[in-house]
Amino acid sequence: MASKANRPDLVVDGKRLDGRAMDELRQLKIEANVLKNADGSAYLEWGRNKVLAAVYGPTETQPKHMADQTKAIIKCRYQMAPFSSLEDHGRTGPNRRAIEISKVTKEAFENVVMLNEFPGSMINIFIEILQSDGGTRAAGITAAAVALAGAGIHMKDLIYAVSVGKIGEHLVLDLNMKEDNYSDSDMPMAISPRNNNILLLQMDGEYTGEELHRAMEMAIEAGKTIGKIQRDALRSVYTNVAEKYESV
């Protein structure tokens, strides 16, 4: 979080700088099955974020000693492309931030993937942030869930993620990069929409108990929109093929 002293006005006349209302998502587009070689994949644009997620597996666990003979293991790698940010040229390879995000992402998916069906195996999730504009971990999880379903991996639910932050006295949904840089709080969450259980939760800044409650409500409400876009992306892979013949 950058210093608040030189913070630009992020909220003017009840609207955010990009014209959104406090509880409004940025535009979200998802396309499923975009990569030929992967078992499942998804390309997502969320605001100016551009994210590619792919799933390989279940396959034989490598290295072998990491295999769990009672269930499958999930490996996850989140990475930002060197050209993904406006200001810098990033170095390739995982840094501490990316390693942490990979870990909490993996743990969120361990909650919903039916790991017992493929004992001894490994499921690989790769998330590449091609362009970043705030909220990339949420975007990565939302894309990876679509890739997992498209890979035919059995799951309890199609999970999504979104962030709720705080700017001054306002709670704001789905912060972009600029808002994220100057916000007073940020709280990314991954949620299982079937029961609204929270599978990933990180937070820093300042929330009252009441604000925390409202923030979680906002994330759950946003899930209705996000979930519909995820589902439509998967459905359209098959309905598009069908329409080619059935509409005639």
Binding site: L35, N37, Y56, T92, F126, E128
Partner: peptide, 14 residues
């Protein structure tokens, strides 16, 4: 620089 991303092929490793 070039990176052979593991999402590009089952043969590529991180």
């Amino acid at each position: 620089s070039a990176e052979l991303l593991p999402l590009a092929s089952a043969e590529y490793e991180a």
